[in-house]
Amino acid sequence: MSDASATGEVLLRCKHVSVRRGDREVVRDVSVELRVGELVALLGPNGAGKSTLLDALGGVLAPAQGQIERHGRVAIALQAPDLARRSVLANVMLALAWWGVPRSERAVRAREALRAMGAEHLAQRPAGALSGGERRRVHLARALAVRPDILMLDEPFAGLDAETRANLLEDAVSALRSGTRATLVVVHDRAEAWALADRLFILIAGELVAAGPPRELLEHPPSTAVARFLGFDGSLQDAGEMLLTRPAHVTLDPAGPLSARVTRAVPLEDGVRLELELERGRLYTVAPLPAPRPGDTVRVRVLGGAQFPLPAADGVLASPPRAGARPQATVAPGLPHERSP
């Protein structure tokens, strides 16, 4: 799959790039473009080859095949937020020195970047005394301070607790957006991608399997593999069609057209995640408290979802949608399913 959906000046273009780590081909035939002003998230499960692709796009690794054009300087913020044993401000100034920024400009630019990341109050603190979240902020500030044409961040929110990550994400959303730069962020959490990105690249097993705006991919996943990765965990089958659903598509409704049996109930903060067994498949939903218990029979309504032709008998789920048809969140013949409002 290739990506060619956005508009604007192209700062990075790669065509049919494959990357090897030793004898293993980790990234296969990827073609993408990054344009000025856009913020793109590279999303994929662990081991998909995201960091390897990032290294290749950033020039750290040479591709085994294909071409990469870069128009401007690339800065990469690696996954490990290791800082030098000196103050926070000195760390950011050090990065500016590496980048080649004149000495006279470093302090001002370093403070500006720290302010953008909500870390100005840490300026004089020794790096060794920072918490995990603070280290991440300084690490991001270091990459922002150099003002690259193309900024690449490798899992900038990894290893943080939920609250710290949410706070950092909130600050990063505005700090990472720039009208003069293209930014590529590697994430493996979908929530981070939704919060940050104008466009998503989805990499699974080294292949770019989807590219496009997050909402569009969520509404029209191009394949069952992408749909599964995007959280379409429920499925209903009938008459050669398969409907994949996310929990949000499934609601408990006493007047619903489908009957289901609750097979599992997992308590969540704000309700219960239910596994529902139906005659023609299995669905998942999140129900408010008080929720039905395992063994109960409930009525269910499905609103939305993505429809695909039923996979071949060999059970391969990564088949593309029917030829000539885009997966639709509409009622399929034979499936008791309703158009989402």
Binding site: V60, A75, Q79, A80, D82, W99
Partner: peptide, 22 residues
């Protein structure tokens, strides 16, 4: 040394002299 620090220095354009000094 933490490998991430030196790799980050390389990724942000540090030359050999800067890397050795670090």
């Amino acid at each position: 040394l933490p490998p991430g620090l030196l790799a980050q220095a390389r990724a942000l354009g540090a030359g050999r002299a800067q890397l050795y000094a670090l």
